[in-house]
């Protein structure tokens, strides 16, 4: 169907390509927050957020895992293309050289993947509702503190950018580090736990500047400040 041979003359300009928006995204405070939890591809702007737009060329949606959403979008936005891809004849010819049972298997697999993705999304949604942001005040030496913030990624915060912004905001240093549990947290030098909570509270009320905008989707109720005193023999405090 597609022409395989290279065109002989040089191309005049870039061709425009349509990408699927079967699941829609909106840009909020620099992060793409997906309004639709039912997708499985992870989007760049919210790598730690579980969901993303389909973003494939629509002819490939059948290989993604939220085909029904993609189809609904395409039918609405580009009815002509919808006919081209999903009309009876299109479906019949699409099978191409694939045997019928293989096609049936493919469709069954897609349906399964879609169901799985939905279950996963629902699960993540639940997890998100239950998840917490832990702000930990850690005493490193007598009256020397670092503050770790774990769990921000669940709420669409780009850790690397956020740590940079926090370092600037509090005129200190900050870094993203791995937690023993395998996750990631931001570690800020100095005791900024209370300031941080304030910043998150401001952000959720829409106050503040660019730094707080990053945290606008973090519900203050999910935040908790924890103290970690210096212990003899240190029981593996975060980051070291």
């Amino acid at each position: 169907m597609a022409d395989d041979e290279q065109p002989t003359q040089p191309i005049a300009g870039p061709s425009t390509v349509l990408y699927c928006q079967g699941t829609r995204a909106t840009l909020v405070g620099g992060f793409t927050v997906l309004t639709d939890p039912f997708c499985f591809l992870r989007h760049a702007r919210c790598t730690t957020l579980f969901s993303a737009v389909c973003s494939l060329p629509p002819e490939y949606c059948e290989f993604g895992s939220h085909l029904s959403k993609c189809k609904a979008w395409l039918e609405d936005a580009y009815p002509g293309l919808y006919q081209e891809y999903y009309s009876e004849e299109a479906l019949a010819s699409k099978v191409g050289t694939l045997s019928l049972d293989k096609q049936a298997k493919l469709e069954a697999d897609v349906a399964k993947a879609e169901a799985k993705a939905e279950a996963r999304a629902a699960n993540e949604e639940k997890k998100k509702a239950a998840s917490k942001v832990i702000i930990k005040r850690i005493e490193r030496q007598k009256r020397k503190y670092v503050t770790s913030i774990a769990g921000l990624e669940t709420f669409g915060v780009d850790l690397k950018k956020a740590s940079k912004a926090l370092a600037q905001r509090f005129a200190t240093s900050a870094a993203v580090s791995k937690t023993p549990a395998g996750g990631e947290e931001i570690v800020v030098a100095g005791d900024v736990a209370d300031d941080l909570l304030e910043l998150i509270e401001d952000a959720s009320e829409g106050k503040g500047n660019k730094t707080s905008a990053m945290f606008k989707d973090v519900p203050p109720d999910a935040c908790e400040i924890v103290e970690e005193k210096k212990k003899k023999g240190g029981a593996g405090a975060g980051g070291e």
Partner: peptide
């Protein structure tokens, strides 16, 4: 994405439909 914009910038090879899912 760049290849999509300039489809002839690379030589083409083609897989059959059965292989697409493995590619994905």
């Amino acid at each position: 994405r760049l290849v999509h914009k300039y489809p002839s910038m690379l030589p083409h090879v083609k897989i059959d439909r059965g292989a697409i899912r493995y590619l994905f």
